[in-house]
Design a protein around this nucleic acid. Structure first.
Lengths: 127, 127
DNA sequence: CTATTATAGTTACCCAAGGTAATTATTACT
DNA sequence: AGTAATAATTACCTTGGGTAACTATAATAG
């Protein structure tokens, strides 16, 4: 499984912990980068800060993320909680299964080719 | 320009007539198929009926669509108005330009290959 | 032919996820 | 020290997805 279209963009309901698309994007970032500020996430996701604030507030209410102290008292640095990492792992399995399913019949060569071409287009878009 | 990712799914603001993504999808269908019922559109878009009702109501308020008489008094058959077709043409230009821009450096062969592969995946998803 | 079932659409709600404008607190810079 | 910039929040608006319950009409079974 090389091509993982939902690696970081998910539109589906998942397991019993149903993460929404934007929530999963944040989980993904926090899991792979350890922690993040809201501005960092807003740049990563290409959305405005209030959008991130809202989603993070929700994730905090759900007990999935927690603050980590920072020198800069303006910023709010956040990481996944133990529960958050557990949920990430669960959802990861669901997504992996889903991606395996939708890649049935698509060869490794084709996946790499599609990744390459779509990346080129993406670069043209965000540039 | 073979690969047209936004042919029918648009996420961007357009010209002075700013069509939203779901609105454009409906414009696209009506322009190419002449007219449609709400159920027809809900199948095409893979969304529920109330979603279509809302969007169509909005398009009607904007003067972009109008009813066409039907034998079956239950259904509400709709088509683009003259204004609707004018807006379609305007937006079409904007999208074509956008798609040309984001395909810079992507050969015709690559576009065809990407279309083929992504179609395969799409079929796995909607199946 | 009537009674039931199926279909098309609407209404009233809920929610996620994007946006802008204005504000506060803190930091950086001149 | 005073001003700029930055991080985040709050209040508000919008689109666009969903479900449940309903009405009106058409199709079908007995």
């Amino acid at each position: 499984m090389l091509y993982r279209p939902f690696e970081n963009k998910l539109n589906f309901h998942l397991a019993e912990h149903q993460l929404h698309r934007a929530q999963w994007s944040i989980f993904y970032y926090l899991f792979n980068y350890g922690s993040a500020t809201l501005v960092e996430l807003s740049h990563y996701l290409y959305v405005e800060k209030p959008t991130v604030t809202r989603t993070m507030t929700r994730l905090e209410e759900l007990g999935y993320v927690e603050h980590v102290p920072s020198h800069d008292k303006r910023e709010k640095r956040t990481q996944l909680t133990e529960l958050g990492r557990k949920v990430y792992a669960e959802v990861r399995v669901t997504i992996d299964q889903f991606e395996t399913d939708i890649l049935k019949g698509v060869s490794e060569r084709e996946q790499l080719e599609a990744i390459r071409i779509m990346s080129e287009i993406r670069n043209n878009i965000i540039k």
